[in-house]
Design a binder for these strands. Structure first.
Lengths: 235, 235
DNA sequence: CGATGCGTTGATAACTTTCAAATTTAGTGG
DNA sequence: CCACTAAATTTGAAAGTTATCAACGCATCG
């Protein structure tokens, strides 16, 4: 039960700049997004974060809410024994960093070079006060987040094979082009997300490939060959 | 990976009756409770559920919100492979069954004979519209729930010993009389909550007792002998 | 090139589950 | 209240799963 590396280069952006112009359609934003996502894009500043840089830290005041424009983001927490637990992965269009408490419960880092819209939380809640549909969307967002975490609990009580299969299906749902899933994150990220080791993740993927459920042409690209088999494994 | 029993006697209360009179202080309600809890007690009907009876079922419309008056309650879900996953335990004063979606995501059962206040969700949200403090409390409740589930994710990536130690500390925080924790639930309930087998839970408790961290005078009563040791094990 | 990071594979150890049985506790009827 | 049966818990032995430790391959980058 020893710590896994969790190496970090952690440059910090010190100031929030106004966006240069919200350049509509500039990036691949997740398909449908509600009023809320659009409002954030209008109100917020776009910031760029290089690969592996910190977006915010655990226990920092949660004064801002974030939305991924391009690239991808992970949230995580370092446990007392040094292990790293990844809280979630956020892809273009996803909102993250919205907290109920005053402080962030996770840290956030860019997995790959990322552009992120940053909005003051107070501005968002003020907007929700004026526009009931925004309030409902914030509420719904919270509900989805709760559901997402509950689903992860269900995933974590299962075997390694079920966790990996479940993870692939989750990513496929969120980021698939046909049957091809491009994983932005490393094996270590996946392992820390699923509560496994990188070796077990790697071996499980190899096993799924041997079982003809997937193909792994490159380590970051997974082709789903047999979804029903994956669904079966997922339980 | 086979199903564990999950035996159920499942009488259902069919109708909601008006309470006979909210008889203040009639029962041991958790220490401090906000406006919300009090309002529920005023507005709601008190219902009695015998041990192991169903309070609501997964996928039923979530039209009511519940608050434990006496006894205790578990929520759970049966997974496709027949295993049972316990979602949480609710003690006197705790609110449960509040959903974001239209349907319950878990089933709920009385662990021991239980009295529960039942309030129409619509009545509660209407109240929240008139009384902002209720709205805030509902919001805070959601935040706590989210935190609770996130904490469980952190628990589930750990070893059996860490999970059991963490569980005992959680229960101690919620229901301890000094260092004595009375567990309302069975080993099977604990196992299904922690994603372990009853044998592992039992052996781990025996191990903690051998290590002088706890005493187990009866199977449902745990005496915490060395909290710092438990905290250390908890990670 | 040679260093470095990432991913895979192998051998072994540690941990948890499974299957089986013994023991204790709780519930029921006399 | 006691005896009896069923249920819950504990304990043991063996099997299965995952982690750990170690080595290797591959690609990138200076």
């Amino acid at each position: 039960m020893l710590p896994q590396p969790a190496i970090r280069t952690t440059p910090r952006n010190e100031a929030l700049r106004r966006p240069m112009a919200p350049a509509a359609g500039q990036v691949a934003v997740a398909a449908v997004q509600g009023h809320l996502g659009q409002s954030m894009q209008m109100m917020g500043a776009v910031m760029s974060f290089p690969r592996n840089s910190e977006i915010f830290g655990e226990n920092e005041p949660a004064d801002y809410v974030y939305k991924v424009v391009s690239g991808s983001v992970r949230t995580y927490k370092i446990l007392s024994d040094g292990r790293r637990q990844v809280g979630g992965f956020y892809l273009p269009g996803d909102i993250f960093g919205l907290e109920f408490a005053d402080e962030h419960t996770f840290s956030a880092e860019a997995i790959s070079d990322a552009k992120v819209v940053v909005v003051k939380r107070s501005a968002l809640t003020a907007l929700a006060g004026r526009d009931a549909s925004i309030g409902r969307e914030l509420f719904a967002l919270t509900g989805r987040e709760l559901r997402r975490v509950q689903d992860r609990v269900l995933l974590l009580v299962k075997s390694a094979q079920e966790r990996v299969a479940g993870f692939l299906l989750e990513m496929a749902e969120r980021a698939a082009a046909g049957n091809i899933v491009e994983l932005p994150m490393s094996r270590q990220d996946i392992a820390d997300y699923l509560g496994l080791t990188i070796e077990t993740v790697s071996r499980t993927l190899t096993g799924l490939e041997t079982a003809a459920a997937i193909e792994v042409p490159t380590s970051r690209r997974i082709v789903l060959r047999n979804r029903s088999a994956l669904n079966r494994l997922n339980g």
